[in-house]
Amino acid sequence: MKEGPASVLLRLFTHPACAGCGPVVKSAWELHEAFKGRFELKTISLETKPGLDEAFAQGIKTIPTILLFVEGVEVERIIGAPAAGQLEQTLQKILNP
């Protein structure tokens, strides 16, 4: 198996009032644990002004949205709650190329 990339970051844009966001946050943290921290996970709440500013800067229009970065470069954008298994498959593809 080839070694995965040195730096993988998952940024998850969310809001406490977004009904569909909670399960995605939970699933992202579960995957973070399952992959033993092989990627960095950052949740960004749009409840705060800095979170909103960051979302606008990234061109986010809908939450939840997940951005995946490999060595600082965005490689995947999942808009809305991902289908079952979609996020895990995406992470597998990135972490175990």
Partner: peptide, 10 residues
């Protein structure tokens, strides 16, 4: 106001 961001299902 920079813009509007909507929850899925908006």
């Amino acid at each position: 106001v920079s813009g509007c961001i909507h929850c899925e299902g908006f």
